[in-house]
Nucleic acid binder design. Structure first.
Lengths: 209, 209
DNA sequence: GTCTATAACGGGATAGAC
DNA sequence: GTCTATCCCGTTATAGAC
């Protein structure tokens, strides 16, 4: 029964507040209030608000780089792919505050820009390699040009789907369902799959509906 | 040679600054500075910064509602459709500050939320009707479920493409090219079109590449 | 490690002269 | 309509006691 360190509580609470209220709307005072500690105490652990954001970003970055290390020439089956999508959406949803006010956040913490872009590139590259795997397995048939557009579209959707979904369908910003995102992603892929695989994806995606 | 009214200059300059720096980063002082008028003068014309945003939003809303009034049962040819997309992207790009920090902006100017959502719905509905037209003309073949996913995807892309594109490819936030967005949209539609129409879209989209 | 108090700053907005 | 001066407030961050 170890006591949770204050530093860690600050990180957790900040993430939660950032996600539900938007990072710009969360003041250091609000964070310390929520934790029932003094503002001074918060600044003992982090020398600035930016440092909290930085720490959260580092965690996001680590999660993503880990997840996106897709083996270049493995045969990925469709169900494993949809599991991958699921993890991807969960990872993004966990740090959705980054996406909700992207331009603002990246402009105020400019050291994150490059790193963010690097992750974006990795996402597109991962989709390229996954589609490559599908093509080698003869599960997919797509022209090179359409492939480029598709992979960009998949990346866009990973980034923005949850914001879009929240905006257009829900009030409660704390309720996030990665499922609908996965469903949408699978539907992007669908038209380029062979008959059998289309059926398989329809079955998988029915669960996510 | 009529002199441009200060009020209008405030609106124009604000829009420009909002778009290139992000609305939260633009202070009323910066706006008045840029115009070489006093802050007090700005507040003579608008009683708050929010009122400037409100006015800009009203213009965006009017543009969109006008554009999205798609005739329900007309036969829309593909080239007209791509022209429509072009206008749509231009309209969004002109007010892109709204999208760049959407959650933040809508949370601070909450009276815009409903109206924003209404426009979003209209966009999806417009795509539904356009696809309906394509189906009636036997240019398109798509199952009802895939159609729903497609129209949501088109709406998502209209909203976020330009932010995404700027983020992933460009440094200069003032340079916006609606073409790449149109290209991406056409590629979403492509797999559901009949042979002949696919060729036609490929030709159209080649211009936008 | 944690607190209280407060400094320092910036941004939105107003008052009142011209 | 436009200006200058100023107020008010919220937010970040620090100093120094406990």
């Amino acid at each position: 029964m170890k006591k949770v360190k204050t530093r860690d509580r600050i990180v957790d609470t900040s993430l939660h507040l950032f996600n539900s209220l938007g990072e710009p709307n969360v003041t250091t005072l609000l964070i310390s209030d929520e934790l029932e500690i003094s503002p001074g105490n918060l600044y003992y652990h982090f020398k600035s608000k930016g440092d909290i954001v930085e720490e959260l970003f580092r965690a996001y970055e680590a999660d993503m780089l880990d997840l996106l290390a897709v083996p270049e020439d493995a045969d990925i089956p469709l169900d494993q792919f949809s599991f991958f999508l699921h993890l991807l959406f969960e990872g993004v949803a966990r740090y959705r505050f980054l996406y909700q006010d992207l331009v603002n956040v990246l402009s105020r913490y400019s050291q994150l820009q490059q790193r963010f872009r690097r992750i974006l590139k990795k996402k597109t590259a991962a989709f390229q390699s996954l589609c490559g795997s599908f093509q080698r397995q003869e599960m997919m048939d797509i022209e090179p040009e359409a492939l480029g557009a598709l992979c960009e579209q998949l990346t866009l959707t990973v980034c923005y789907w949850s914001s879009f979904d929240t905006l257009s369908h829900l009030e409660d910003r704390d309720a996030v369902d990665p499922g609908r995102g996965v469903y949408q992603m699978l539907h992007l892929l669908l038209p380029y799959l062979r008959e059998d695989e289309q059926e398989q994806v329809k079955l998988i995606s029915a669960d996510y509906r």
